[in-house]
Design a protein around this nucleic acid. Structure first.
Length: 939
RNA sequence: GCAGGGGUGGCAGAGUUUGGCCAAAUGCGACGGGCUUAGGACCCGUUUCCUUUGUGGAUGCGAGAGUUCAAAUCUCUCCCCCUGCACCA
């Protein structure tokens, strides 16, 4: 098969008939949308997964009789596109190499210094790739998130949010580059690392006889009761500065960083030596403690000063050992103070930290990694199972004590929050990222209780696929609180409440899907005519069309149709994305719909798909195993690519894309195609057993595939529709099936079932089996219940298992040196079937035995029973009572089936086959027969 | 740490809601055989161990304990892995 030819043929056919550009009609609407891609690079397999899954649903629902709209747009707002252009301008060799790999010319790369050119270039790349994949997208509604009309819409959205009191202003810590002086996100750091902001507590220790406090940064204020001394970095520069009217001492580097979080005025520099000469007062216990040099202290982290808790911190303990060893007198006088008791390794130990470190090695030559590990373990265990032994929080679990000490110390002004970057992210300009506390940050208040109530309602109403992710959504819904909504840079819509800011790019894409419903209608309208009145009318039904037309200058007809179009398409929406968007986009999507739209238009379904693996590995640039969509489609064709990426796993599982698997899929297509191409080889005749079996399998398949597709369990669907189909066809032919009508009907139905998954191949198969319409417009097949027969299927299974067993026996006979010629099958007597089914009812051997003895059995069935034989059989069955199952066949059925299959079994076993009933058989194997398992005698 | 999802045979991955037709679908891989000049194509068989004129037994689904006539499936405890944790698309 020439896939390229087939694909372009059918793509052209769909386009000619504008199959995917729907307009509202009498049918029930069904709108499918996927998160629009961010176009700072070419499409990748993740996009294929999400859009491909949405396409399967769109095509399926279309076949189910819905009027389906599947639109798409492009996300351009935010900073990544700007960052990308900037990297090109700076001739970033890595990026340029990547771009070249995708076949982008030097000239185009040069032009990409212009962010808008870069965006438009990749928009085209997406459009082409998605078209080549045969996605049933309505291209007449493409929107771009920096279109002025889009901005008008976003302004309207924010006016509503503002009217509802959901925008608030406040302080907020952000990652910040001290060099470039702006906020830093993942896309702005080396290696695309998200700067990880952590909150520490800076505890103040009064320096004796001085007017300042030193500040120790800690994650564990509850250990304040166990502090024995202070550690400073020998030789580091410290400063005394004024913060909020207080004099505080910390390292010079820490002071610089703190200046981004609060007002810091350096008064004077102070040497570490001087700090080491003083004593300090523990704010909680009032104890006076010395300062010592700590080898592990990092002057750039926290405050550059550490409170030492040797009993509970391996670093502190090790440092003291080190000092003792080098004859440091003050260190020898220190005794660790235990403040937490815990279960496990350290239970009952005077110095718990000893349980976590290997004193011999750590004390000999401090092994930072080992101590780090010990610290992690001790912190974890103490948090989990520790109990406070001393102080105001005695008896409390460490977890609870920590929260309370934290709050108490802040309340009594003995401590304050300090933010740190925990993962030492570096800006692309190679400056370390710091934490800046911004005080004029606008937030969307997702913590607003009235809003949450509505969002909960919206979540209750929406169907989540897969349903097991609902708890994740519920968690996300309760967790989301303040979300910064305006940023100082990036592309996008100007923030209405502060026009020096841009609306953050996830916040401007929460309800944009509703814009698709009217985008084609307003294409000719100038953006400034799109006033709040217009959107109020279209989306909220406020006001009347005539007045809006007068006020805006937009034609009455356009306004009216926009309202109708929105009302029609938004009646049912299905939203698709990867799991990574649950905690931001999808949850914001729910919140925004809940507060802006009438309940009627709330989301009806959300589907979350997994990722795509290559040879079992996650695709990533650093591994160099990413697959270019263009290349994949060129190599394997659209259908195979779609099939692999979209169907090789159920919805939320990770699918696997690799050449071997692609080959397997292609071979099966070819197999189906070759049968469809040779239909004339088969004649039409009366239906045989195997024909009925084929029909039963087909109708069962229709049920399976329908159920699975409804839930987007596409692996299940694809297995049934491709892999199982090939197995069934092969079996059909092997069993002597050759009926043209049956084969044609089977393949025809199969091509319809393949329609959503592999649309081009499906059309091809559909036409080869004698149809002239488009699958894309066809009706989904309905299962014919009357053709389902578990009995016939069971009978086929008997043949298969009988052949298996026979081969086993033949093998054993041959091993003994005789060459078998004939196999005799002895079908069990009817009483065995009856007893089998009686036993299967409740697996109660005693009851059945009673039936036999009391004669009840005789009364219930119209045949004679030999009590002795019945008892023997029943007790034999009792041995594996757990596996007895009821059977639908009877001896006459099995006799016919085996006789009918004689030729086939003979071919498989290489023996002459005879079949007889147990009655009057005389064979030594007759008594071994049971229902579904005839006796086997090899002669 | 918090929240969520998981741990099944060489691998991938069903099965868990509704306990028993589960030594566990299906696919891949490996091995043996057939077909062939040859084969990555196709067909047959094997792929936990034992037993063997078959439809039998033992062990077994992260670890341990429990409920039950019966557990991959239910309960409890523990261990481990993955994802997200915010202004960033």
């Amino acid at each position: 098969m020439d896939y390229e030819e087939i694909e372009s043929k059918w793509q052209a056919a769909w386009e000619d008939e504008a199959v995917f550009e729907p307009i509202p009609d009498q049918r029930q609407s069904y709108m499918v949308s996927s998160a629009f891609p961010y176009v700072n690079g070419p499409p990748h397999m993740g996009h294929v997964r999400t859009y491909g899954t949405a396409d399967v649903l769109a095509r399926y629902k279309r076949m189910r009789g819905f009027n389906v709209l599947f639109p798409m747009g492009y996300h351009v707002t935010g900073t990544p596109i700007l960052a990308q252009s900037k990297r090109i301008k700076n001739k970033d060799p890595l990026l340029i190499k990547d771009l070249k790999k995708f076949g982008i010319s030097d000239e185009d790369i040069g032009k990409m210094e212009d962010p808008l050119y870069l965006a438009s270039y990749f928009i085209e790349a997406f459009r082409k790739a998605f078209r080549d994949l045969g996605l049933s997208i309505d291209w007449s509604r493409q929107l771009v998130s920096i279109d002025p009309k889009f901005s008008k819409f976003i302004e309207w959205q924010f006016s509503i949010l503002s009217e509802n009191g959901l925008l608030t202003k406040g302080k907020h810590p952000v990652g910040w580059c001290p060099n470039e002086n702006n906020a830093i996100g993942m896309h702005d750091t080396k290696g695309d690392i998200e700067p990880e902001i952590e909150e520490m507590l800076g505890i103040k220790f009064r320096a004796e006889n001085e007017d300042y406090n030193i500040v120790c940064a800690t994650y564990r204020p509850e250990t304040l009761y166990g502090v024995t001394n202070i550690f400073v970095k020998n030789g580091a520069q410290y400063v005394i500065c004024e913060v909020n009217g207080e004099r505080l001492c910390l390292s010079s580097m820490a002071a610089d960083k703190l200046a981004y979080q609060t007002k810091v005025k350096v008064i004077t520099e102070i040497d570490s030596a001087e700090l080491l000469n003083k004593r300090y007062i523990n704010p909680k216990t009032g104890t006076s403690i010395p300062a010592l040099p700590g080898f592990f202290v990092d002057e750039a982290f926290g405050t550059g000063i550490v409170m030492s808790v040797p009993a509970h911190a391996p670093f502190d303990y090790t440092a003291l050992l080190e000092l003792k060893k080098s004859g440091y007198d003050a260190a020898s006088k220190i005794t660790p103070i235990k403040v937490i008791e815990l279960e496990g390794a350290a239970k009952g130990k005077d110095i718990p930290s000893v349980a976590y470190i290997d004193v011999e090695t750590t004390a000999g030559d401090p092994n930072m990694a080992a101590i780090e590990e010990a610290t992690k373990n001790q912190y974890r265990e103490e948090l989990r199972s520790g109990t406070m032994l001393v102080g105001d929080y005695k008896g409390l679990r460490v977890k609870d004590a920590r929260d309370r000490v934290w709050k108490d110390l802040i309340a009594s002004n003995d401590a304050a929050s300090i933010y740190v970057i925990a993962n030492s992210a570096i800006c692309r300009c190679s400056f370390s990222v710091v934490v800046k506390v911004v005080d004029d940050q606008w937030f969307l208040n997702y913590g607003d209780e009235k809003w949450k109530v509505k969002a909960r309602e919206a979540l209750k109403n929406v169907r989540i696929l897969p349903e097991k992710l609902r708890p994740t959504f519920e968690g996300a819904l309760e967790w989301i609180n303040l979300r910064a909504v305006a940023r100082s840079q990036g592309l996008g819509t100007v923030f209405p409440l502060d026009n020096t800011k841009i609306i953050e790019s996830l916040s401007d894409s929460t309800i944009y899907m509703s814009l698709y419903t009217i985008w084609n209608l307003i294409s000719e309208i100038e953006s400034d005519k799109l006033t709040h009145e217009f959107f109020d009318y279209v989306y909220l039904g406020k006001g009347d069309a005539e007045a809006v037309s007068k006020a805006t200058g937009i034609p009455y007809e356009t306004i009216k149709r926009s309202r109708e179009s929105f009302d029609y398409w938004y009646a049912f929406t299905s939203r698709h994305s990867g799991a990574e968007l649950i905690f931001n986009h999808l949850i914001m999507y729910l919140f925004n719909h809940a507060v802006i739209f009438d309940e009627k238009y709330w989301p009806k379904q959300i589907a979350i798909n997994g990722t795509v693996l290559s040879e079992g590995e996650k695709m990533s640039k650093s591994l160099g195993n990413t697959v270019d969509v263009k290349e994949a489609v060129g190599k394997h064709g659209a259908d195979v690519t779609r099939f692999m990426v979209v169907c090789s796993a159920d919805l939320f599982g990770d699918s696997e894309y690799n050449n071997d698997a692609a080959k397997g899929v292609k071979e099966r297509f070819d197999y189906l195609d070759s049968i469809a191409g040779n239909l004339s080889l088969y004649a039409t005749s009366e239906l045989k057993h195997i024909d009925y079996w084929m029909y039963s399998k087909l109708n069962r398949k229709i049920i399976t595939v329908t159920e699975a597709t409804e839930k987007l369990e596409l692996r299940t669907a694809s297995t049934a529709v491709l892999y199982d189909a090939v197995i069934e066809l092969k079996r059909y032919f092997l069993r002597g099936g050759n009926n043209q009508v049956v084969i044609t009907e089977y393949l025809s139905a199969l091509s319809l079932l393949l329609g959503p998954l592999t649309p081009h191949f499906s059309e091809e198969l559909w036409h080869k089996t004698g149809n002239s319409t488009l699958v894309a417009r066809e009706k989904w097949p309905a299962a014919n219940q009357s053709m389902l027969s578990s009995k016939i299927e069971m009978e086929e299974e008997i043949i298969e298992s009988l052949i298996d067993d026979s081969k086993h026996v033949l093998d054993l006979v041959r091993r003994k040196g005789t060459e078998p010629k004939e196999i005799k099958y002895i079908i069990a007597s009817e009483y065995k079937y009856i007893l089998n089914n009686e036993l299967a009812k409740d697996r109660n051997v005693k009851r059945v035995m009673e039936m036999i003895k009391s004669g009840e059995l005789e009364n219930s069935y119209p045949i004679k029973f030999d009590i002795q034989k019945c008892m023997e059989f029943t007790s034999a069955m009792a041995k594996h009572i757990n596996t007895v199952k009821s059977v639908e066949t009877n001896p006459a059925d099995e006799f016919d089936v085996l006789n009918d299959a004689k030729e086939y079994i003979g071919k498989e076993t290489g023996c002459k086959i005879t079949v007889e009933h147990e009655e009057g058989s005389g064979s030594s194997k007759a008594s071994a027969s049971t229902a579904l398992k005839p006796g086997i005698e090899v002669i």
